[in-house]
């Protein structure tokens, strides 16, 4: 028997459509990705200079406090007495919870203080007062 030494069939992977396939995958993942993002209520945040960035967004839970003292967590308007249990449940699910307090600059500090006391009772002690960056006049 005789075998031919080399097969004459050329082997090549067609790469012309590679870009199309990668784009298709890209678009698929872009479309199918869902960001959990709560909209909250519109607040005018106060401004501060000595601010820190909040890393690790998934540990952060935001509490919105509006001008009229309305408290909003995860797009739900809550009464003051509901804040503690909800935050405590969140803290049990994630012990590294950081509370981002997004209160309106014109809000009454009394309401903010009430929420802070609820947080203390719920043992959620890492709090960040959300602010905007202030342009300092001295250029510090």
């Amino acid at each position: 028997m005789k075998f031919s030494r080399r097969s004459k069939v050329g082997s090549a992977i067609p790469t012309a459509s590679m870009a199309d396939i990668s784009f298709l995958l890209l678009v698929f993942f872009m479309v199918s990705t869902v960001f959990v993002r709560y909209r909250g209520i519109p607040v005018k945040l106060p401004e501060a200079e000595k601010i820190e960035k909040l890393e690790m967004r998934r540990h952060v839970t935001s509490i919105w406090i509006g001008t009229n003292g309305v408290i909003n967590i995860d797009d739900q308007t809550l009464g003051l007495d509901q804040v503690g249990p909800l935050i405590h449940a969140k803290l049990l699910a994630n012990p590294r919870l950081i509370i981002s307090l997004k209160a309106d600059g014109a809000a009454d500090f009394g309401v903010v203080s009430d929420v802070l006391q609820e947080l203390r009772k719920a043992e959620a002690l890492r709090v960040n007062f959300s602010t905007l960056r202030e342009r300092s006049p001295e250029g510090m």
Binding site: A48, S62, L101, R120, V127
Partner: peptide, 10 residues
């Protein structure tokens, strides 16, 4: 990104 004044409550 969220930013603000961090504080540790007692």
């Amino acid at each position: 990104q969220d930013k603000g004044l961090s504080l540790h409550l007692p």
